[in-house]
Nucleic acid binder design. Structure first.
Lengths: 216, 216, 216, 216
DNA sequence: GATGAATGAGCTTTCATTCAT
DNA sequence: GATGAATGAAAGCTCATTCAT
């Protein structure tokens, strides 16, 4: 059930990592920690154990290396979404699966969070376009509101703005991961893993209780 | 009802902005756009219309200037929270007020979002400690779960994990602002202001419908 | 017998030091510690307790202030030499008096040593010209070798190169003060004052035993 | 008899000087002329004919480059002392050899004098510790006074303070070199080389005549 | 005389990138 | 592919000096 997102997800066989892969790995962590502007080519080379010139040989520029790092992540996320969200009929099943994917993504791709946050901070980010394309490509942003409308028509969901509802669901899931360092401090959460484990159920519970037709 | 968060919130009378304030204003926008590492002292000086050395005269280092920018924001946020969240009894009133504050903060302090996102991206950020302190200082992180517990005991709220519920509420509100560029693209939201206007009601509606005791 | 070289030698009445004097005092110690290139106008102003612009008001430039510091020293040294070396007949009396003066100069004008060393380090120093003039002005550099020649003619001194002998006498005296930090370390001299007290006698003793006619 | 202390002493084959050596050579002369604070990295780079960044590539900082310059000198001096002061029995032979070494050092390492003077001017110089160690390492500071004591016990030397005597010998030798620009002016010495050539004999003569037991 | 703020030139250092081997 | 050395542009910062009040 858990996906294959082990350490070597990006580089299946660690023992024969090519120079290009070593650079990519080092760059991933460098850019996650310091961002594009703050990341240092020297540091990447050193922590990859290769000569600095090799970075230019393989990736031609720091900025391009950064792009490679990001597109690697998105390829992986897209692939996960595609694999895990097919053949699911009910809206609940789909949303649960999506929640799972995000949890896995953040759990197993530790640098992803930082990279995305920094991209979100930039006024015009070509990267966001890429993510958006990946997400739209899953068909979910269109399908989910449509399914909700169907449920509303069928009298099972309350009359809500379906896009707002979708945004609510997404932010409850992703939002926690994005601002977890802040939340952990404010709520004195010490066992983060435990909190995350319960998170999915809590979100699903609140969301469907909030959207389904019930009587007071 | 809307607060005085106009452009000159930090410098009431624009016409007599001191050099220090001009620098701070320029720095705010520079760091929001490019981050600490990407921000350029030259550019700040130029766009503030002052000599570069003045930045060091007034703020002693680029990093310290950055800190001043951030702490200025937090002071403002803390002050807003303090002003707007007092004398409110019911949990609903409090959460609505908090939602209003966040909406205002993001609407009126355009650089805040970027700055916070970049800080969230950093593994160890002393700034997050500052925000956390501001938030804890409002008493809300303790009060809200307590009020929820009271409602649960009184049979009015369902048996939910109160901290998870709080996190859900917060992320539904803040989360949208943080990832709005992405959401806007994915959901093809063109009139962002319109979406934001409806957002508060949608969140409150979903949240309380989801947490209150009702019958199916 | 000991001269009036107390702390306030340069500024007779400390309690009413003018701004110009305060600056001069601070500058003296600053330039002694860091040299002309390493000395900082800011630091001088701060440690003098005056505004930086005052330095320019009173001394017009850093370099000029430096010159004032040095010429203050030389005036003092010249004055000392003049006072203490007059009315002395015998060569021994004169050399002893000169040794005393140097000892007093180094003992009571703590910054002098550093300043002179730095000037000596510079290939072309107008300051050295000034000192040289002061020294020549005392008449000693001409008188002493002449007196030695007389002694030689009279058969009391051995046939030595009188200028070399004078240089030997001077370096034995001054030389120690110039390189004392080094000598103290190498010879593990802990009680420097004690060593200095004995120095004069040792020099005189060695010099005259070395130069007088004796039999093996 | 004279040692190989030609211009390229530090870099035996001038035609293949490495970049690091070129920098070191340029730095040596720059720091000798202007000191650490007054020395300019730009100037060093230009006069070495290399890119400024190379200085940081090879020596990581201006201060460190300065340290390298000095330790290079001290290594050389230590080596000279070690080579020239072995296998010498009599105290006279040893002192003469030491005097020769110092004369050679000052004659052939033209920058040494300035560098040492500036270091002597600094209140706390780690460099002086290094020189002191080199000197102590030669064993002379301990051996010479001991030899003098032996001579005194044997009735050949007069009863003198042996450390004072050693200091006298050293300052007569080194002292002249340190303050030569001053002495030359005061005594109108035009042919410095001639004076230096005679200096050694004059010092030895005065010293031993002064310390040996003789009769008036 | 005295001050705080301002200036401009120049400082040390950094860093992405390229070159020669 | 791989390396160590090199480059040039620009970065952050300093500092002697001056100005307005």
């Amino acid at each position: 059930m858990t996906p294959d997102l082990s350490n070597n997800a990006y580089n299946p066989v660690a023992s024969v990592r090519t120079t290009g892969e070593k650079i990519l790995d080092a760059a991933r962590s460098e850019f996650a920690r310091f961002g594009l502007a703050g990341g240092r080519v020297d540091r990447i080379a050193r922590s990859a154990g290769v000569n600095k010139a090799m970075i230019y040989y393989h990736y031609s520029s720091k900025e391009n290396l950064y792009r490679e790092v990001l597109s690697g992540h998105f390829r992986r996320v897209g692939q996960l979404l595609k694999t895990r969200l097919t053949d699911l009929e009910s809206i609940q099943a789909r949303l649960e699966a999506a929640a799972d994917v995000w949890m896995d993504v953040f759990a197993e791709m530790p640098e992803f969070r930082s990279l995305v946050l920094r991209e979100l901070a930039q006024p015009s980010s070509e990267l966001l376009d890429q993510i958006a394309d990946v997400l739209i490509g899953t068909g979910l942003p269109e399908a989910i509101p449509q399914l909700m409308s169907d449920e509303i028509s069928a009298g099972r969901f309350r009359e809500v703005d379906t896009r707002q509802a979708l945004v609510s669901f997404v932010t409850m899931n992703i939002g926690y991961f994005l601002i977890s360092p802040l939340i952990n401090r404010v709520l004195s959460i010490t066992d983060e893993n435990d909190f995350i484990r319960n998170r999915k159920r809590a979100v699903i519970d609140l969301f469907f209780n909030g959207i389904k037709v019930r009587k007071l």
